[in-house]
């Protein structure tokens, strides 16, 4: 069962980032997304990214918002700065508890 879970996780590739890149992305979300959403992700000028709220949206919606931004609001498109795979990793982590 544990092996199967591991294989599945590996298969989605969202969980297969280099450890160093995961650290960079964690810093990016906490520090740079955090300038609007709060370093603890509780919200600020931007909405809360707390697990309970984020879990109400499906992954594809969240990925589209992060990559494409939200027109008419300060939420910018992050396409070009982070890859689709990295955004899926961020979304997965927001839903399961974002690392410190």
């Amino acid at each position: 069962m544990v092996v199967l879970a591991g294989l599945l996780a590996f298969g989605t590739s969202a969980w297969a980032l280099e450890e160093q890149r995961e650290k960079e992305l964690t810093n990016l979300v906490r520090q740079d997304c955090g300038s609007c959403h709060g370093m603890t992700l509780k919200g600020g000028l931007g909405r809360s990214l707390a697990r309970e709220r984020i879990s109400q949206f499906d992954d594809d919606t969240l990925v589209a918002i992060i990559l494409g931004g939200v027109p008419g609001t300060p939420m910018p498109p992050w396409r070009g700065l982070i890859t689709d795979e990295e955004v899926r990793w961020i979304v997965g982590r927001l839903k399961t508890g974002f690392p410190e």
Partner: peptide, 12 residues
């Protein structure tokens, strides 16, 4: 900005 499309703002 004379109606030009804005560049994304990654920090206010």
């Amino acid at each position: 900005g004379k109606g030009e499309e804005k560049l994304p703002v990654y920090k206010m």
